[in-house]
């Protein structure tokens, strides 16, 4: 731990091979992120973790820390761009938080609160993707998917099951279930899988458990995401 860089003027120590985001995390400094999870290799799709390194923007979840780097994160410019990215994610899906079981425990929502997102600003896409309720214990609402690929990585790398995949191109990119029928019921997916725990938003939901936690006691009711362990 002899190396350091500065993050918004603060000295951050890091170990060889750590990314900027990992080092900041270890030092207790919050950098917004959605597709990064400490248990998995970085993905680099959400771009919420963008910082300026020596004056140039880059994703802090994929950029290795180097001695003497000058990193800016909590600036008006970068937070403004993060807010725009968050707004894009909101209008690309159907994020009707008032009826979403993940509300209050959702990382996308909590990040939007953190960034002071008063409205989604852009025109809505209103996608129409069928819900998959075939599995006895799990419901999938694809209209809330932010394509972070955490479920894909968890199922492939931890569970060894390969239940999920991203398919399609451009705006048509979407999450699919790896079964001939395309239905979750026709896979060996279970609630005990790591992939069942990692979705940062309200796509992969356990059935019959919704709305169990009283308002006021949900994860991000108690503390903003920036003050929650590991920012999640």
């Amino acid at each position: 731990m002899s190396h350091t860089f500065t993050l918004d003027g603060k000295t951050i120590p890091f170990a060889e091979g750590q990314t900027i985001l990992q080092a900041a995390d270890a030092a207790g400094v919050f950098i917004p992120h959605l597709c990064y999870h400490p248990d998995f290799k970085p993905h680099g799709s959400c771009k919420l973790c963008t910082v300026k390194v020596n004056g140039r923007q880059t994703a802090s979840c994929t950029m290795r820390a180097l001695p003497g780097m000058v990193v800016e994160s909590e600036t008006e410019e970068i937070n403004g761009e993060r807010r725009a990215l968050t707004q894009m994610l909101f209008v690309e899906g159907n994020h009707f938080c008032p009826s979403c079981e993940k509300s209050g425990n959702c990382q996308l929502q909590a990040t939007a609160y953190h960034l002071g997102m008063m409205s989604p600003h852009f025109d809505h896409f209103f996608p129409s993707r069928a819900v998959d309720a075939s599995h006895p214990d799990v419901l999938l609402d694809f209209n809330r998917c932010i394509l972070c690929s955490l479920c894909v990585r968890a199922s492939r790398d931890v569970d060894g099951k390969n239940v999920f995949a991203l398919s399609g191109r451009g705006i048509k990119t979407h999450l699919i279930v790896n079964a001939k029928s395309g239905r979750l019921a026709d896979t060996d997916f279970t609630l005990a899988d790591k992939a069942a725990q990692v979705c940062p938003v309200g796509v992969i939901l356990p059935k019959r458990l919704g709305f169990a936690v009283p308002i006021g006691e949900r994860k991000y009711d108690k503390a903003p995401i920036s003050e929650t362990t590991e920012g999640r």
Partner: peptide, 18 residues
């Protein structure tokens, strides 16, 4: 001023959009 989820993003009534 847009007050509330419905004015802001259509809200739950916009679930009819599909």
């Amino acid at each position: 001023i847009a007050l509330g989820a419905c004015a802001i993003n259509g809200g739950l009534p916009a679930q009819r959009n599909h």
